[in-house]
Design a binder for these strands. Sequence first.
DNA 1: TAAATAGTGTCTCTGAGACATTATATT
DNA 2: AATATAATGTCTCAGAGACACTATTTA
Lengths: 250, 250
Amino acid sequence: MSDQHPDAYDASTYPSVFVTVDLAVFTIRNGALSVLLIERGDEPYAGRWALPGGFINPDEDAEQAAWRELAEETGVEQWAGHLEQLKTYSAPDRDPRHRIVSVAHVAFAPNLPAPVAGDDARNARWWAVDDVVGGEDAPELAFDHAEILDDAIERVRSKLEYTTLATEFVEEPFTLAELHRVYAAVWGRPPSLGAFRRKVISTKGFVEATSTKGGTQAVGRPATLYRRGGAAILQPAMLRQHATEPGAGD
Amino acid sequence: MSDQHPDAYDASTYPSVFVTVDLAVFTIRNGALSVLLIERGDEPYAGRWALPGGFINPDEDAEQAAWRELAEETGVEQWAGHLEQLKTYSAPDRDPRHRIVSVAHVAFAPNLPAPVAGDDARNARWWAVDDVVGGEDAPELAFDHAEILDDAIERVRSKLEYTTLATEFVEEPFTLAELHRVYAAVWGRPPSLGAFRRKVISTKGFVEATSTKGGTQAVGRPATLYRRGGAAILQPAMLRQHATEPGAGD
DNA sequence: TAAATAGTGTCTCTGAGACATTATATT
DNA sequence: AATATAATGTCTCAGAGACACTATTTA
């Protein structure tokens, strides 16, 4: 914050606003990157789908509020995944009623169940992100949530490049094939399997092999099972072929 | 934002807060990455150094407020550089007087002059970041600005890796040696000159050669002069030797 | 000429992509 | 055996680091 005006806190001089958190909660379902949306029951935007969110309490910072909302919305108490701040959205007219500034967050977790429905008659479900952002019969989201979701998706995609965050999308223990499918789902196109295996295994602290073997498949050679390692960043990064390729051929 | 409680906007139910922007403004001065700080005249933290910032007006979003503050603090009307949102800081007790949520921003520009002093008797100057974050006689910053500055520095460093942002730190036209010195200043250690030149030149859209030659040096072969190209991201990234080697996470 | 800075060539090493080959399980 | 999946080996190519070498200017 900081300020240069000693009396700047006079509420008559500067207006106060409401501050909320919004959440883009991601998981992998049926091999597709999916996000949790809630159908609004009230105006404005009644009937539209929106990101879950809520107000920050007086004793919370934004991250604590996000964790709390996450538990409330998903019904998951012991959250196994990761949560981080995304960006703050503050256009003066983003909410037609009041000035509301929202601190958006991104969360990831492995293979979450369908969200708690009973709670308060709201409709809530997982959407494959391709069904939300991909033109055609994609729903129009409430408020500026389409923009938030776009930014959130880009955050997830880029984080897979230079961090070990992909491991947050799978349950331990996991196989390298499962981890590879996370990259395929999030990026749309998987990295080449050979290079992927080499990189994951050779990057110290990305994953740790366990002594047991197994996997979900009923047939075929059983896979080595791994746990998350201690490393957080990938150096160098896992390469993704950006959609915006520099001049073809090249 | 979004909400699930139709009457949630009742001010008696949820408290309103003040929202500010803070700015970490960076430039290169005397070969060192430097940040603009302001000495506070009033309590709290009177006498402490702080990041410049101010309140968001009712008709502005956070980015517009940041641009406005930037012009006010630096006295630069035609801002040649870049500004982007960094992160929002919202600890309930980060300001002892009121609940204040701050949307921090990062700005870069080439070789800025000493900040406007006369304005309102406040003391303002450029600090080499090594003098602010480096132990010893580093000043204790006001509020949570030390944390913000840490995050801002890390943002600048990492952005040089995967974007063409370094060109925002030099005035056009510039030489490759000047651009190389930007990397040296921001990272502490420069990338190897040979690889650097190859990468900058071979990355389409990073820089564009001009027909003229020159440079600042009085002696030696005159350098080719360049302008910024149209590209924004570097694919693959410029490699930096991280201080924190991969292996041990947080 | 010497000194200074700009720019190139070349060697080696790492690692990515492609894909053939081998390994280990079930039926 | 046949089939399915896991895992490895190998070839090639792009690019990074190191550094010697060449180029172009001023004094």
